[in-house]
Each structure stands twice: as C-alpha cells, then as structure tokens.
C-alpha cells in the first residue's frame, strides 16, 4: 500500500463536472500511479473525455477535487486528444511540432543536442521521418494522429493519456500503436480511452466504465479480456 502511495501521480476524490446544468461526470474516485494501465470504457457522450480533461487539469472540477500527488513540475505528461485544439493551417512543420512537446514548465529546458536526437528517435520509432518536413495541413488524419503521439512521447512522459488514439488509424497503424505502447517503460502510467479494445491490443491493469447516467465504476473480469470488448456492458460490473 505504502509502495503504491509512493508511486502515485494524480488522484480524483468525489470529482464531478457540470456543463451548466448538465452533469457530465460525478463522484469520480480514481488514483493513477506509476505503471498503471487504465482503460476507460463507456458510451459516446458518457463523460470519458471530461474525465480525462479533469485529470489533466484542463477542466476544473465543479465538485470534489483532483490533485497531483507530486509537484506538478516534476510530472511529465503526454496527451493525445480525441480532437486536437490546434489550427491545422498553423505554419509549423511536423518536426517542429514534435520538438515543442519537449518544453516543460517555466524552467526545465532540454539541451539543444539532446532535443534534436530525441526528436529524431521518436520520429523514427513512429515511422514519421519522411514526413518530418511536412506542414500539418499536408498530413492525413492518420498521419496527424501519429504526429500527436510523437509529440506526446517525446518528453518521456510519466503519464500518457490517449483519448481515442486509434480513431483515424488504419489497421497497420493501430497494430504499430499497440506495439509501441508495449515498449514503453514499465513505470509509465497509461490512461486510455478507446472503443477498440480487441484481444491482443492493450492489456489494462484496470478498467473503468464511465457513463453520465451513473457514477464511474470499475469493471471486473480483466483476466477475461475479451469480456471488455463489448464496451464494458458485459464486463460484470463490480459495484
């Protein structure tokens, strides 16, 4: 228990969020620690992305609290959003975008040499070398998704948050993504939102069912992984 506490990254206690009068999420109790592999399942509009945005600090909870368990500046986060917030017409090349992912806090600069080699490394891992000079407006949806993953991975995140990362990917790219996640250091925590949890893809240590009609609750039966494939409804909720 004490060991897990030492590995803790972020904790939500009774957290909820309302968009005006609409309840998007309520009574969320969740802690993510180093090495956790958590998958969020649930219907469209169920509040999964809201949960992610609360944990990342992009939304302030309207109820309860979300707090970092280590100084925020010490936690490197990687985030692949479901819908990128940037303008695809922004005059920036893929390589430059990935390099921006190395920026951290007010200080925490990365040495220029290290940053160049790290960017090269990530672009190579994700098969993006040929696209490094391309502008974002020239990328397809799948290529943009891979570029976002590269930006999320470049700073060696302790918590990697992936919101529907396979939505625009073809089958080969999906397999490459799952394989890449397997190679991440064991201490990297991953929070995944997906509708694409087929056997042999991503092996979560925990699954959470999120639906705005009910409080988020854990799903049992992770050992029988295929049971989660029906978006969690058949996953024998353990409430």
């Amino acid at each position: 228990m004490a060991e897990r506490a030492a590995r803790g990254l972020v904790r939500a206690v009774g957290a909820g969020f309302r968009y005006g009068a609409d309840v998007a999420l309520r009574d969320l109790d969740l802690e993510i620690a180093a090495g956790d592999r958590v998958v969020l399942l649930g219907p469209n509009g169920g509040g999964k992305s809201t949960l992610v945005r609360l944990l990342l600090g992009l939304l302030e909870p309207t109820e309860g609290e979300v707090r970092w368990l280590r100084p925020r500046a010490e936690i490197a986060l990687g985030y692949v959003p479901q819908f990128p917030a940037f303008d695809r017409g922004f005059p920036i090349r893929l390589e430059e975008m990935v390099r921006l992912g190395l920026l951290r806090g007010r200080r925490g600069r990365t040495a220029a040499g290290e940053s160049a080699s790290r960017v090269d490394e990530v672009l190579a891992e994700l098969g993006l070398q040929a696209l490094r000079g391309a502008y974002l407006s020239e990328l397809s949806g799948g290529e943009t998704q891979r570029a976002l993953l590269a930006r999320a991975l470049v700073a060696r995140p302790q918590l990697l948050v992936l919101d529907e990362p396979t939505a625009s990917l073809d089958e080969a790219s999906r397999r490459a993504l799952w394989a890449r996640l397997e190679t991440l250091p064991a201490e990297t925590a991953i929070l995944l939102v997906t509708h694409d949890l087929a056997p042999g893809t991503f092996a979560p240590t925990r699954a959470l069912f999120v639906d705005r009609e009910a409080n988020p609750f854990p799903l049992a039966g992770l050992g029988s992984h295929p049971a989660l494939c029906g978006h969690g409804h058949d996953g024998a909720p353990s409430r």
Partner: peptide, 14 residues
Amino acid sequence: AVAFDEEAARVQGL
C-alpha cells in the same frame, strides 16, 4: 507553443 496549441501547452505545464 502557446499560440499553436494552448491545450497542449497547458498539459505540458507551460
């Protein structure tokens, strides 16, 4: 970074 993608910049702690 902030002008390009404010959300990502916030996640990065900028």
